Computed example of a mutant assay.
Amino acid sequence: MGTYTTAELSVDVTGEKRDLLTLLQDQRNMLKITARGLSDADARKQTTVSTLTIGALIKHLAHGEENAARVITERDENAEFDMSQAMTEYVMGDDETIAGWLAEYDRAALGLDRVIAGAESLDELIPQPTAPWQPEREWSSIRVMIMHLIRETAHHCGHADIIREALDGQTTMGAISEGQDWAEGWADQDWAQ
């Protein structure tokens, strides 16, 4: 399977589980590349008209993976999305570090991967928390939950890439291709021509 990064899995899975978790791991790696070499101050820096920061995006996605694992394992048919918690996820506080959130992201990812590896079937239906945008209880398969995380992570990788490029010019694809013979001059091309 073609990936942008070396997407090694921490769990032993095969088939569709392996394919989905490999794609998710590749997106996780892409996000972490945007944080490479950042100071805590830079990880908190807003570089666009948005209030998003790289540190806050990693914090948000760490919570998202942890929440997904909990939703799968607890299967609470009365769960409600915690809006007050969600509002704190988009800020990396002064007492928080980028290294701490990267470690938390890895821990949450490992936890989710273990839950997925242990799932009997990706077809298992899991009750989803209700939310203001989803007031009626819905049930999603574990497969759909993983696909949602892949989409969510990819979406925020784009945000993080723009934030990082505005900070110091680094792009994720440029960072990936750095030092590769095939990429000489590729990352520096003016693609707008």
Rank of each mutant, 00 (worst) to 15 (best):
I33H: 13
S10Q: 09
T22A: 02
L38Q: 00
R36K: 15
R18N: 12
T22D: 10
M30C: 15
E16V: 11
E8C: 13
N29Q: 08
Q25I: 09
G15T: 02
R36H: 13
R18D: 07
K32Y: 11
Q25G: 03
L9I: 14
D26S: 08
Q27T: 14
E8M: 10
V11I: 03
V13Y: 04
V11W: 07
L24D: 01
D12F: 05
E8R: 14
L23A: 13
E8V: 13
Q25A: 04
D12G: 05
L20P: 04
L24T: 01
R18G: 08
L24K: 08
L21G: 00
G15S: 09
R36V: 01
S10L: 01
N29S: 05
A35H: 00
T14C: 12
L23V: 10
Q25F: 08
L9Y: 09
A35T: 03
E16S: 05
K32A: 04
L31G: 15
R36F: 03
M30I: 15
Q27F: 04
D12S: 08
T14A: 14
R28W: 00
N29R: 11
L24H: 12
T34F: 10
E16Q: 09
V13W: 08
L23R: 10
D26G: 00
D12L: 00
L31R: 14
T22N: 05
G15L: 00
L38W: 03
I33Y: 02
R18W: 02
L9P: 04
I33M: 11
T14V: 10
L9N: 13
G15Q: 01
L23E: 08
A35S: 06
S10M: 10
L24E: 00
V11D: 11
T22K: 01
G15Y: 04
M30K: 03
D26E: 04
L21F: 07
D12Y: 01
L21S: 04
K32H: 14
L38S: 04
L20E: 03
K17H: 06
G15D: 09
T22R: 00
L9T: 11
R36G: 07
L24C: 13
N29H: 05
R36D: 14
D26K: 08
L38R: 01
I33C: 06
Q25W: 07
L9M: 11
R28Y: 12
K32V: 02
S10F: 07
D26Q: 12
L24Q: 06
T22I: 08
G37K: 07
G37I: 02
K17Y: 06
T34L: 11
R18K: 01
T34R: 11
A35F: 07
L31D: 15
L23Q: 10
M30S: 04
V11A: 05
E16F: 04
L31C: 14
L9Q: 12
S10H: 09
N29Y: 10
I33L: 01
L38I: 02
T34Q: 13
K32D: 07
S10Y: 05
R28I: 02
G15W: 05
L38D: 01
N29A: 00
L24M: 13
D26M: 02
S10D: 09
E8S: 15
R18V: 08
V13H: 11
T22H: 00
K17M: 09
K32R: 05
G15A: 12
A35Y: 05
R36A: 01
G15C: 12
Q27P: 08
N29L: 14
T22V: 07
G37W: 01
Q25H: 11
L9A: 15
L31A: 15
K17C: 06
R28D: 00
